[in-house]
Amino acid sequence: MKLTTHLISAPLHTPFVTALRTATRADSLLVELSDGPLSGWGEAPQVWKVTGESRAGAQACIEGPIAAALEGLGPDDFTEALRRIENATAGNFGAKAAVDVALHDLVARRHGVSLHGFLGSTIDTVQTDVTLSVGDPDALADAATARVADGFGVLKLKVGTDAVADVERVRRVRAAVGPGPRLRLDANQGWSRRDAVTAIRALEDCDLELVEQPVAAADLEGMAWVTDRVGTPILADESVYGVRDLVNVIRLGAADLVNVKLAKCGGLAAARTLLELARAHGVRTIVGSMMESHVGVGAAAALVAAYPTSAVNDLDAAWWLRDSPVVGGIRYDGALIRLPFEPGLGVTGLIA
């Protein structure tokens, strides 16, 4: 098998603003894993403020230790190849995820089935929420109204910059869209534990579905403190990369749900383990994405099709792109992601 990497920088149609950063482009590394005439695709997004991984670092990891670990193996060595990808290096979960997904994609293509079919599903649509960037109350209310008109029934509001102002923003959005759409908040670690409790309690009459990562990722005790003091479900995101992290969340009762992302955990193989572990311990689940393209989001959507989660998933990342950087793959239809019928991810190459 041959590994080839491709740097991409895809412009967004609208700036994406969170408590941690402002993005106007999605910078990623696409990975092509070839065996004869067939190629599988994967993606390692650059997310400085969350995973700390860069395109250059992912490229060095993939072309160095991961490529060396896979030397001599072919697609039929699927299980062994997955083990070697996982053990090739410490950390570097985005790089591992890209090669893990490319391998899954390649094997699915060899079997002539879609990736979601290879994972065991006949479901060909997956629902997603849509994110509203951090902004002033008027802008948020306008954006929320527009997204509901676009067909989205679950809105995720980025908060975490100022707890008092956040309350006003959320109230304006609820007033603008009415009681129908579900609202979920993502603080991206931006609140203190006390501010989190104050803000969430102040908004419980707004019928929030959940609040994601209200406090710093490392502060599991703080997140457990918040979870114990509010009625709104708490979702762990940046606090959970792998199995050990999820075990600690479960042990402390730190969250009601966990957000599983391929670029955080290392790929489809690790993500399946996390989803099963959470389910076994009564922790609800969603699958999310970083700011990535139709390749990474397509893999996550295929996972959701085969491993249904507890709530609508957070897979709108590629919706923010002005244009897809690849030929084929998933497409958005309002709040639905339509999975391809073609083999694997349905991606046939880069757009020139």
Results as ranks from 00 to 15, higher is better:
residue 47 V to F: 07
residue 166 D to M: 11
residue 184 R to I: 10
residue 88 A to K: 13
residue 341 F to H: 13
residue 90 A to T: 12
residue 326 V to T: 05
residue 63 E to V: 12
residue 351 I to L: 13
residue 176 A to V: 05
residue 243 V to W: 03
residue 181 P to R: 10
residue 218 A to R: 14
residue 81 A to C: 10
residue 244 R to E: 15
residue 307 Y to T: 12
residue 326 V to K: 04
residue 168 E to D: 03
residue 208 L to C: 10
residue 102 A to W: 01
residue 331 R to A: 12
residue 68 A to K: 14
residue 96 K to C: 11
residue 61 C to D: 10
residue 302 A to I: 01
residue 250 I to Q: 10
residue 208 L to N: 03
residue 62 I to Q: 01
residue 126 V to Y: 00
residue 114 S to L: 06
residue 320 W to D: 03
residue 241 Y to L: 11
residue 172 R to D: 09
residue 81 A to V: 09
residue 199 A to G: 09
residue 348 T to G: 09
residue 38 L to C: 08
residue 291 M to R: 07
residue 12 L to C: 04
residue 121 S to T: 07
residue 324 S to C: 05
residue 165 A to W: 01
residue 77 D to H: 13
residue 96 K to L: 03
residue 311 A to G: 01
residue 149 A to E: 14
residue 10 A to C: 14
residue 188 N to L: 15
residue 110 R to V: 03
residue 299 A to N: 00
residue 182 R to V: 14
residue 297 V to C: 05
residue 244 R to D: 15
residue 122 T to L: 11
residue 4 T to I: 13
residue 230 V to S: 04
residue 237 D to N: 10
residue 121 S to G: 03
residue 317 A to F: 02
residue 243 V to N: 00
residue 125 T to V: 15
residue 189 Q to I: 12
residue 285 T to A: 06
residue 203 L to M: 09
residue 269 A to P: 00
residue 207 D to P: 04
residue 118 F to E: 04
residue 309 T to D: 01
residue 52 G to M: 15
residue 319 W to F: 14
residue 72 G to R: 12
residue 168 E to A: 15
residue 161 T to A: 12
residue 243 V to Q: 08
residue 107 V to F: 02
residue 46 Q to H: 12
residue 337 I to G: 04
residue 50 V to H: 06
residue 131 T to L: 05
residue 99 V to G: 05
residue 176 A to H: 01
residue 174 R to K: 02
residue 287 V to C: 12
residue 144 A to S: 05
residue 263 A to S: 14
residue 266 G to I: 07
residue 291 M to S: 08
residue 87 N to K: 15
residue 134 V to T: 08
residue 131 T to Y: 01
residue 337 I to F: 01
